Lab assay of single mutants.
Amino acid sequence: QVALSRTQVCGILREELFQGDAFHQSDTHIFIIMGASGDLAKKKIYPTIWWLFRDGLLPENTFIVGYARSRLTVADIRKQSEPFFKATPEEKLKLEDFFARNSYVAGQYDDAASYQRLNSHMNALHLGSQANRLFYLALPPTVYEAVTKNIHESCMSQIGWNRIIVEKPFGRDLQSSDRLSNHISSLFREDQIYRIDHYLGKEMVQNLMVLRFANRIFGPIWNRDNIACVILTFKEPFGTEGRGGYFDEFGIIRDVMQNHLLQMLCLVAMEKPASTNSDDVRDEKVKVLKCISEVQANNVVLGQYVGNPDGEGEATKGYLDDPTVPRGSTTATFAAVVLYVENERWDGVPFILRCGKALNERKAEVRLQFHDVAGDIFHQQCKRNELVIRVQPNEAVYTKMMTKKPGMFFNPEESELDLTYGNRYKNVKLPDAYERLILDVFCGSQMHFVRSDELREAWRIFTPLLHQIELEKPKPIPYIYGSRGPTEADELMKRVGFQYEGTYKWVNPHKL
Rank of each mutant, 00 (worst) to 15 (best):
T330I: 07
F378H: 01
Y398F: 12
H510L: 11
I377Q: 03
P464M: 08
F370Y: 10
E284H: 13
V496Y: 10
D490M: 10
I480G: 09
G356H: 01
E454L: 10
Y479Q: 02
R354K: 12
L339Q: 01
L437Y: 09
E365G: 03
N360D: 14
Q499M: 13
G485A: 02
N508Y: 13
K405F: 10
N427D: 15
L466A: 07
E435D: 06
P406Q: 15
F442V: 15
F378V: 02
Y421C: 15
L265F: 07
K511D: 09
G375H: 09
R484L: 09
P431C: 06
A297E: 10
L289N: 02
G407E: 06
E361H: 12
F449T: 04
L261G: 03
K285S: 09
E472T: 09
N411T: 09
W346D: 00
P412T: 13
M447K: 04
I352W: 00
K383Y: 14
K363A: 11
V341W: 00
E361I: 10
V397K: 03
D280P: 06
P464G: 06
Q258R: 13
F410V: 07
S415K: 15
Y398P: 04
P273T: 00
S293R: 10
K494C: 14
Y398R: 10
L471I: 07
V295S: 05
A297R: 12
F449Q: 01
E284Y: 04
P393N: 10
V281H: 05
N508H: 14
A396C: 14
W506T: 14
V507Q: 07
N508L: 11
I292F: 01
Q499F: 11
G407S: 15
S415P: 05
R460W: 01
P509T: 13
K290Y: 03
P393L: 01
M257H: 07
H371I: 12
V300W: 13
Q392T: 05
K357W: 11
L419R: 03
D310R: 11
S483L: 03
T316K: 10
E491Q: 07
Y425P: 14
K383V: 11
D418R: 06
V428Y: 12
H467R: 15
P431M: 14
D440I: 02
M408R: 06
S278V: 06
L492G: 01
C443A: 09
P323N: 11
E414F: 13
F409H: 06
T331K: 10
Q296D: 09
A374Y: 10
T324M: 12
Q381R: 08
M402W: 11
S445G: 10
M447W: 12
K475I: 14
T333P: 00
I389D: 00
G328D: 13
F410P: 14
V295Y: 04
R354Y: 07
K494F: 12
V391H: 15
V341E: 01
G502S: 13
R390G: 15
K475H: 11
K511L: 14
A458N: 14
A332K: 01
D347K: 13
Q392R: 15
G303W: 01
T333D: 01
N308H: 09
T420A: 14
I292C: 14
F410R: 08
D490C: 12
I389H: 03
V288W: 02
L261P: 04
H371E: 04
Y481W: 08
P323Y: 07
T503W: 13
P464D: 07
N298L: 11
G497M: 15
V373L: 14
A297C: 10
R354Q: 13
S445T: 15
C382V: 15
G348M: 02
P323C: 08
R460D: 01
T331V: 10
D418E: 08
V391I: 08
L368T: 02
M402D: 06
E271R: 03
D283T: 05
P464E: 07
E501G: 04
R345L: 10
E312S: 08
K357V: 07
P509A: 12
Y481K: 11
N308A: 13
A315W: 06
V388D: 00
Y398M: 15
D490H: 12
T487D: 12
G313Y: 06
P476A: 07
E435F: 04
V341D: 01
E457T: 03
L439C: 06
K429Q: 12
V288F: 05
K290G: 05
E312T: 06
G422H: 10
Q263N: 15
R460G: 04
Q380S: 06
R345Q: 15
K511C: 06
F351N: 02
N298F: 06
L265R: 01
G502Y: 13
K429G: 15
R362A: 09
P393S: 04
P509H: 07
E361N: 15
F442N: 02
Q369T: 09
R436E: 15
W346L: 01
P431V: 13
F410L: 11
E454F: 14
N360C: 08
G356L: 01
P309W: 05
D376N: 14
L267K: 04
E395R: 14
T487W: 08
T399M: 10
Q263F: 10
L353P: 01
W459Q: 14
D347Y: 08
C443N: 09
D418T: 06
L439K: 05
F410Q: 04
K475S: 05
T403M: 06
C382D: 04
M401V: 12
M270D: 03
T276Q: 09
V366P: 03
A297P: 04
G348I: 01
Y434W: 12
K272E: 15
M264Q: 07
E470H: 10
N427A: 12
I480C: 13
V397I: 12
E361S: 15
V295G: 07
N423E: 09
P393E: 10
L262D: 00
G422R: 10
N259H: 15
L387W: 04
R362C: 07
Q263K: 14
G307L: 04
S275V: 04
R436V: 08
G303P: 02
Q499Y: 14
N411Q: 09
T316P: 14
E294G: 14
C291Q: 04
L471N: 08
L353S: 00
Y421M: 15
R390H: 14
M402A: 05
H379V: 09
A358P: 01
Q468P: 04
S415M: 15
A335C: 06
Y504Q: 15
I292L: 08
V366L: 12
P273R: 00
E342G: 04
E312Y: 08
D372S: 07
E271Q: 04
S293L: 07
P350W: 00
P412V: 10
R460Y: 01
V441C: 03
V373E: 15
R390Q: 13
Q392E: 13
E501C: 05
S329T: 09
I292S: 02
N394I: 08
K475P: 11
L267M: 14
F378R: 02
Q263L: 08
R460N: 08
M447I: 09
F449G: 01
H260T: 11
Q446W: 01
G502V: 14
V338H: 06
L265Y: 00
Y305D: 02
D440H: 04
L359E: 01
R460I: 00
L387C: 08
V300T: 11
A396E: 15
R390V: 08
K475R: 12
E294N: 08
L353V: 08
R345P: 01
Y479K: 01
K272F: 05
F378L: 09
R384M: 09
E284D: 04
N277M: 05
D310K: 12
